[in-house]
């Protein structure tokens, strides 16, 4: 061990002081995930606010961890939550079980279920980690209204699936505003 070794050690320390800091101040400042990080799920909406989920349970079927529970319901003319006949009456994801694999997102036939990059899924009790439909539904963007309400963008669900975003523009949503709830802007 040489006589200058202790000083050399401090040299490394001092040297680091002038380099870029890699440490992230979490949770005080926060740490955004990569833009395409798969965090928690979100149930998206059509541009008029109706839910995209049809309660088909394909996500629950695909889930390897049995984390999803869905129960379908019957839309009526008086009480409509989604275009078409069927909507998801009960939707629960158990984040104690979810392994974030994203198979549910792949299974979703209406692109209702997507993942956003929110990842703070920790809690001190089990009950609060079962997220229900209210927690998972995307926020209402401009031009959307809280269901139940009648179909605003067409006469049947075909109109929604074929030309939903374009029809929403017709209803006065400005060009630069998004009508998709599953983009990153929507998360912000």
């Amino acid at each position: 061990m040489g006589i200058f070794d202790p000083v050399k050690g401090f040299g490394v320390t001092f040297g680091m002081m002038f380099k870029k800091v890699a440490t992230e101040e979490y949770p005080e400042i926060g740490a955004p995930a990569a833009p395409r990080y798969h965090g928690r799920h979100q149930l998206n909406r059509h541009p008029d606010g109706l839910e995209k989920c049809v309660g088909c349970e394909l996500c629950a079927w695909a889930c390897p961890a049995d984390a999803i529970f869905v129960e379908g319901g019957d839309n009526t003319e008086e009480e409509r939550y989604s275009p078409g006949e069927r909507y998801g009456a009960d939707y629960q994801i158990n984040y104690l079980r979810c392994i974030g694999c994203g198979l549910c997102v792949e299974a979703c036939p209406t692109r209702s279920l997507t993942m956003i990059n929110f990842y703070e899924l920790a809690d001190d009790n089990r009950q609060d980690l079962i997220w229900t439909k209210e927690d998972l539904l995307a926020p209402l963007l401009p031009g959307m209204e809280q269901p139940p309400h009648p179909m605003r963008l067409g006469d049947n669900e075909q109109d929604y699936y074929v030309g939903g975003p374009a029809l929403a523009r017709g209803r006065g949503v400005p060009e630069q505003e998004t009508v998709e709830t599953d983009t990153e802007e929507a998360v912000r």
């Binding site: 309660g55 349970e57 629950a60 079927w61 129960e71 379908g72 019957d74 069927r86 009456a89």
Partner: peptide
């Protein structure tokens, strides 16, 4: 039974 469940449930 309309929309009540799926066979795998």
């Amino acid at each position: 039974y309309r929309f009540r469940s799926r066979p795998f449930d």
